[in-house]
Design a protein around this nucleic acid. Structure first.
Length: 114
DNA sequence: GGTCTGACTAGGT
DNA sequence: AACCTAGCCAGAC
């Protein structure tokens, strides 16, 4: 059976360039909706340092705290992600919705289906 | 093999 | 609006 961390890594590596996911979203996607903080802990693992962790943000679009904040900001900016005045990702625009990538916007009801 | 601890979030007071 | 709590993984020592 796959470990919790490995499930997390599988999701994170699939986040497309220029899109973001939240910790809670990833937890829900692997069927462990209360495990948002452990998604974050998984990112501390050296084994996963090559993954695009800069595309993982807090639920309201806030970037991760120091010492990662600045690098994350620049990495996302380089991918075309736009921010609000207070340096939060505009989630309505950039959050990754894997279930509805190729569907019309009007039936994108994620995350309610998770 | 026990103890510690670290990039979260929804719900409640 | 500002705390507080529960959830219960996995690697390092």
């Amino acid at each position: 059976m796959k470990s919790f961390n490995d499930s997390v890594y599988e999701i994170v590596e699939k986040i497309p360039v220029g899109r973001v996911a939240t910790f809670g979203q990833i937890a829900r996607m692997i069927g462990r909706p209360r495990m948002a903080r452990f998604v974050g802990y998984a990112s501390n693992n050296q084994k996963s340092w090559h993954l695009p962790w800069h595309r993982v943000v807090f639920k309201d679009g806030t970037l991760i705290g120091e010492p990662f904040h600045d690098k994350q900001y620049r990495a996302l900016k380089a991918e075309g992600v736009k921010f609000t005045r207070d340096k939060k990702v505009i989630m309505e625009k950039y959050q990754w919705h894997p279930e509805s990538e190729s569907m019309p916007p009007d039936i994108r009801d994620w995350p309610l289906k998770f």
